[in-house]
C-alpha cells in the first residue's frame, strides 16, 4: 500500500478544499470500501481526507420529508423510527445490504459512492476499463453472472452494487453536494451514470465535490413501499437483481438494482402501469416493455425472468396492501 498523508479537517469546506486542491487526494468516510481498495491497489491516493468528524451524522425531519446527513451510518438510518414507519423501502434496502458490522461502519454517502464488485475490477492482474482505462473489459466474455443487462457499453458491463441507491431512486431523493465553488443539489437520478466510453467515472461528481446530505421527499398519504433482493445466498451477498417499489394511489414507482451501471428507474414500466390494474399479467407485460432494450449473454439471460418475476411479486403484493 502506498504511504499517504492523513488529514482530519473540522469543517466540510475545509475537507472540500483539501481534496479539490490536490489531484492526489481522496475523501475517507466509513472506509469499508476504500480501505479494501487501498489494500488491493485499486486506489492509491497520496492524501486521505477523513470526513468522519464533520458532524454530518444527523437525520432531520423537515417540512418536506427527511434530510439524511452524509455521514449517518447505514444501521442508524435503518433503525430510525421515522424511516421504519414511513419509508419501508429505505429501511429494507439498507437492511438487505452487507452485514451488521459493515452497516455500523458504512455511511449514507459512502454507500452511494461505493464501487463495483466486478471480480475483474478487483483482480489487478486482469484488464478492466473501470480500474485502468483503455485496458479492455474482461467481464464481457468472462464471468457474467453479475453483469448488466441494461445500459451497458462495450467498455464496461458491470452493475452498481448499492442497495440503498436503488431504494433512494424510487423515493425521488436529492443529493446535496459541497464543492470548491459552493453548494449545489442534484437529483439522485443524476448522480450515477451509465458507463459509455468512460467507465472509470461512476458518478457525475467532480473531483473535490463532497456529498453532505441526501433529502427524501415525504411519500403520499397511504403509500406502501418495499425492497426485494434476489441473491445467491440468503444473506450478505450482492444482488443478482433487486426491486424497489412504491405504490401510491394510481402512481407506481419502480427501480431495479443489479441490472445496470446505475440504479435503473423503470420509467417505461411506470408509465405503462399508471392507473391500471397491478395483476401478474399486466406487470409482466410492462416489464417486457421496459426490458425491450436489454442485451444478455449466456451468463445473464436468467436476469430477464428473475427481474420480471420479482417485479410482479412485489407489485401485486403492494397492490394488495394498498387497497
Amino acid at each position: 500500500m502506498r504511504r499517504f498523508e492523513y488529514a482530519r479537517p473540522r469543517t466540510p469546506q475545509e475537507a472540500v478544499d483539501l481534496v479539490a486542491g490536490s489531484d492526489d487526494a481522496a475523501f475517507l468516510a466509513g472506509g469499508s470500501n476504500l480501505v479494501d481498495h487501498l489494500k488491493v491497489g485499486i486506489a492509491s491516493p497520496g492524501v486521505l481526507v477523513d470526513v468522519g468528524g464533520l458532524g454530518l451524522d444527523r437525520v432531520e425531519e423537515t417540512d418536506g420529508g427527511l434530510r439524511i446527513g452524509a455521514g449517518v451510518r447505514n444501521s442508524d438510518l435503518a433503525a430510525h423510527p421515522v424511516v421504519r414507519s414511513r419509508y419501508a423501502v429505505l429501511a429494507r434496502s439498507l437492511l438487505a445490504g452487507a452485514s451488521a458490522q459493515i452497516r455500523h461502519q458504512a455511511t449514507t454517502a459512502g454507500n452511494l459512492l461505493q464501487r463495483t464488485r466486478c471480480v475483474y475490477f478487483y483482480d489487478a492482474t486482469t484488464p478492466c476499463n473501470k480500474r485502468e482505462p483503455g485496458t479492455g473489459c474482461s467481464a464481457v466474455d468472462g464471468y457474467q453472472r453479475y453483469n448488466a443487462i441494461l445500459g451497458a457499453s462495450a467498455a464496461c458491463v458491470t452493475v452498481h452494487p448499492s442497495d440503498l441507491a436503488v431504494g433512494l431512486a424510487v423515493l425521488d431523493a436529492t443529493v446535496e453536494v459541497l464543492g470548491p465553488d459552493g453548494a449545489r443539489t442534484l437529483p439522485l437520478a443524476d448522480l450515477h451514470r451509465l458507463p459509455g466510453d468512460s467507465p472509470e467515472q461512476d458518478t457525475t461528481l467532480a473531483h473535490g465535490e463532497l456529498i453532505t446530505a441526501v433529502t427524501v421527499p415525504r411519500l403520499p398519504e397511504g403509500a406502501v413501499s418495499t425492497y426485494y433482493k434476489a441473491r445467491d445466498r440468503a444473506s450478505y451477498a450482492f444482488a443478482l437483481v433487486s426491486v424497489a417499489a412504491v405504490v401510491a394511489g394510481d402512481e407506481v414507482r419502480v427501480a431495479w438494482g443489479g441490472v445496470a451501471h446505475r440504479p435503473w428507474r423503470a420509467t417505461v414500466l411506470e408509465e405503462a402501469l399508471r392507473g391500471g390494474p397491478l395483476d401478474e399479467e399486466t406487470v409482466r407485460a410492462a416489464c417486457l416493455e421496459e426490458l425491450a432494450p436489454a442485451t444478455t449473454g449466456p451468463g445473464t439471460a436468467f436476469k430477464l425472468e428473475m427481474v420480471t418475476g420479482a417485479t410482479a411479486m412485489v407489485l401485486t403484493d403492494l397492490a394488495g396492501r394498498a387497497r
Binding site: G31, V35, H104
Partner: peptide, 24 residues
C-alpha cells in the same frame, strides 16, 4: 471484511477492525 473474525466492540458496537485505519 467478509469473514468477521476480526470483529471487536468499537465504542460499544461490533465493528470490523480489518476495514478500519488505526489512525482514524
Amino acid at each position: 471484511g467478509q469473514c468477521g473474525a476480526c470483529t471487536v466492540l468499537l465504542d460499544g458496537r461490533r465493528h470490523l477492525t480489518c476495514l478500519s485505519l488505526a489512525v482514524a
